[in-house]
């Protein structure tokens, strides 16, 4: 029964979700909202599982003096600090000028921005590897990238203008053509495959053929 009950719940809920897309009649039209609400409630309750797991593992790391246990102290202090200040300030904890707001604006936001900014450097290093013209495909990729990058900045057309390049083959026109036709066609092909994969996976789960998400075969 430990396995059958989840399978039955999955099948019933899955079928209802498929039906609600085609049936506007109540209660089917409300199912999506209900289940979203339930999921949010379960997710909100479950966050304590995650938080407690984080604290337990970090505390254990400190207690046993495992490698890099200093980071665990930072985790616990940060967690306790933001949680206590958040609860202490009550419902108004998000208001401007609160301690929580200060932590959010001057610690959390710069840290997130720093991580996001790293992307610029990672894009450069990844592009360097990807655009090396080792074979025909990589050369085509390099050429496409060259025209798209040149076409996306004003200096591309300005340079082409010096040589009186016709408008139809300006870097911006070539970049637009590559993005609108070649890139869109490729993206759509991938999206069709993904959509079919999602249908197939969902059907396997609803029919109970795919059970590995329950742990095991």
């Amino acid at each position: 029964m430990r396995r059958e009950i989840p399978l039955i719940i999955t099948a019933v809920v899955g079928i209802f979700f498929v039906l609600q897309y085609f049936i506007p009649h109540p209660p089917f039209n409300q199912l999506n909202g209900w289940f979203s609400d339930w999921f949010s409630i379960i997710g909100a309750c479950a966050i304590w599982l995650g938080a407690l797991n984080l604290i337990r593992i970090s505390a254990d790391k400190i207690y046993r003096r495992r490698e890099d246990w200093g980071y665990a102290i930072i985790i616990i202090i940060s967690f306790l600090l933001i949680t206590i200040i958040g609860f202490w300030e009550g419902n108004a904890f998000r208001d401007s000028g609160t301690g929580f707001d200060w932590l959010y604006r001057f610690i959390y936001t710069p840290l997130s921005a720093t991580m996001f900014a790293l992307l610029a450097f990672f894009v450069a290093s990844a592009s360097y590897r990807a655009f090396r013209a080792r074979n025909l495909e990589a050369t085509l990729l390099l050429l496409a990238a060259f025209f798209v990058m040149l076409g996306r900045v004003p200096v591309g057309d300005a340079l082409a203008g010096i040589f009186h390049v016709p408008e139809s083959i300006l870097p911006s026109s070539i970049a637009t053509w590559i993005m609108n036709f070649i890139n869109t066609a490729g993206q759509r092909a991938i999206l069709i495959g993904i959509a079919l994969g999602i249908v197939s996976t969902s059907l396997r789960i609803i029919l109970g053929i795919e059970r590995s998400y329950l742990g095991g075969e």
């Binding site: 495959g193 993904i194 795919e210 075969e217």
Partner: peptide, 23 residues
């Protein structure tokens, strides 16, 4: 794993006939 290959992985790795049939 591009697109549907991610969703095919379970069937592909297990080689179970029922899952392969769905692929």
């Amino acid at each position: 794993l591009i697109g549907e290959e991610l969703f095919a992985a379970s069937a592909y790795l297990s080689r179970e006939p029922k899952l392969l049939g769905s692929l």
